[in-house]
Design a protein around this nucleic acid. Structure first.
Length: 406
RNA sequence: GCGCAGGUGGCGGAGUGGUCAAUCGCAGCAGACUGUAAAUCUGUCGCCCAUUGGGCUACGGGGGUUCAAAUCCCUCCCUGCGCACCA
């Protein structure tokens, strides 16, 4: 087997590139032995878990699945775990107040949406070694009280309150509910149930992942690797993407909205996007950041990412439209149309077509000069404005509507 | 179980009988600026009707006092802290 050595060193090179790209920020217990395993021909079971607590995933989630796919392509067995059980308990990570509990229906709906959203990132239809989707409700819901107590006997309260978030809450005299205390244990048990070799997780999940490592060691005498990835936080404000705060780039956007959302991100995020959400070689990324002006670099990232999710054609079109609409301030090609009776109140049309949430808000937009008739390029500030002829309106930064009269 | 402190808008946090739809900060939205953003400046930021202006709902839930309550009283629920309990 003269080629064997070559093949191995090639795999080692690939594995190294993956781990050094900047997506991975830490490997426990140590990076070198993980690298060796990653490069070896012996497949590992690697998984990533996430609780489907919201409807939309964003780019920071996306990069996790992209990384998992790379591991899969190296021949490892990868699992995408949906925490449909743990979602109902509520992970205390990263929050000072207890998370509200979800019901089964909400969780199921979220899972379905998530699967759709990550489909473009992993080859679920692969003939050989496709990624597997698993649900932790399948094992966690079957545990008895006795099982849970037994599980709990592996950890002390002192170990538990060492956790950053718990310590903080105690300090700030915020409540910690017992169910939240149980959370790391439940999540840790996922590792045991799946009998994995490695877990991929965001760096905010390190404690939970290490809990799994502890349990796996005690119950199955197995040494699990914990691979932590960055959270794509803003390097200046340290903000994370968040649905509830309406900041971020979400995977359920269409090509144009995704492209625009990326362009709307602060410049300092561009490099982070390129590293995490594209597979442009790292040396090339450095060139792009250095050589191109910030807008163009961001456009490169936006185009590349939109392509991943929506294909080359749609992404290109999205870029064209973005240039027209935001750079040249032109009217986009395709805008929603509505037909109304001549003389209808514009204010009501806007509310009825969900361009604004309420009439009060619509009035505010009129006052702010945010409603513009693109035909004569005049602002419409009269809330009593009646539509008597066909007009094309721009409402706010990105909403357009064509109103036809009967 | 007892005692003390507290529960206000998406979040933080003022307000302790009328002038409170509720100071202020963050986030959001809009305008200006720009190479898209960011930063900055300005405005806005419960809902409904309206030209100024008016109405409705809201300060953990329920009840009461009062011409008038987020603010006072009663009661229930929830949280934190302390004490007691530790069989």
């Amino acid at each position: 087997m003269p080629n064997n050595n070559n093949a191995i060193s090639e795999r080692l090179e690939t594995a190294k590139k993956i781990l050094d790209r900047g997506v991975v920020v830490g490997v426990l217990p140590d990076k070198e032995s993980f690298l060796q395993r990653l490069a070896s021909n012996e497949p590992m079971k690697i998984y990533i878990g996430a609780d489907p607590t919201s409807t939309a995933l964003h780019l920071s989630h996306a990069k996790n699945y992209m990384l998992l796919e790379e591991f899969r392509k190296l021949g490892h067995e990868v699992y995408v775990l949906f925490g449909n059980f743990t979602a109902k308990i509520g992970d205390p990570s990263g929050r000072l107040t207890a998370r509200k509990k979800l019901n089964d229906e909400e969780v199921t709906k979220n899972v379905q949406g998530w699967i759709r959203q990550i489909k473009p990132l992993m080859d679920f239809d692969a003939q050989v070694n496709p990624p597997k989707i698993v649900y932790n409700n399948d094992w966690l819901s079957k545990l008895t009280m006795a099982d849970v107590i037994e599980l709990a006997s592996n950890v002390t309260v002192q170990q538990m309150i060492e956790r950053d978030m718990f310590a903080k809450r105690i300090n700030e005299k915020q409540p910690i509910f017992l169910n939240e205390f149980m959370y790391p244990l439940m999540q840790g048990y996922d590792s045991v149930a799946l009998d994995v070799d490695a877990e991929l997780c965001g760096s905010d999940q390190t404690f939970n992942a290490l809990m799994g490592r502890t349990l796996l060691k005690k119950l199955k005498q197995k040494d699990k690797f914990v691979v932590t990835v960055n959270l794509m936080e803003n390097p200046i404000t340290h903000e994370l993407m968040s649905k509830s705060r309406g900041t971020g780039v979400f995977l359920d956007y269409d090509a144009f909205n995704m492209y625009s959302a990326i362009m709307a991100q602060p410049d300092e995020m561009t490099q982070i996007f390129l590293i995490n959400n594209t597979r442009i070689p790292i040396e090339r990324i450095e060139e792009i950041i250095k050589a191109e002006n910030p807008r163009d670099a961001k456009m490169t990232a936006a185009l590349e990412i939109a392509t991943v999710f929506h294909g080359k054609e749609s992404a290109n079109l999205a870029q064209e439209n973005w240039l027209k609409q935001f750079s040249k301030k032109e009217i986009p090609d395709e805008i929603p149309e509505v037909k109304v009776e001549s003389g209808a109140l514009l204010l009501e049309i806007l509310v009825n077509n969900k361009l604004v949430e309420s009439k009060s808000q619509a009035r505010r937009l009129f006052e702010d000069g945010a409603v513009r008739n693109t035909v004569d390029d005049e602002k419409i500030t009269d809330p009593q404005f009646k539509v008597t002829e066909t007009i094309v309106l721009k409402v706010g930064k990105k909403n357009f509507i064509k109103i036809l009269t009967k």
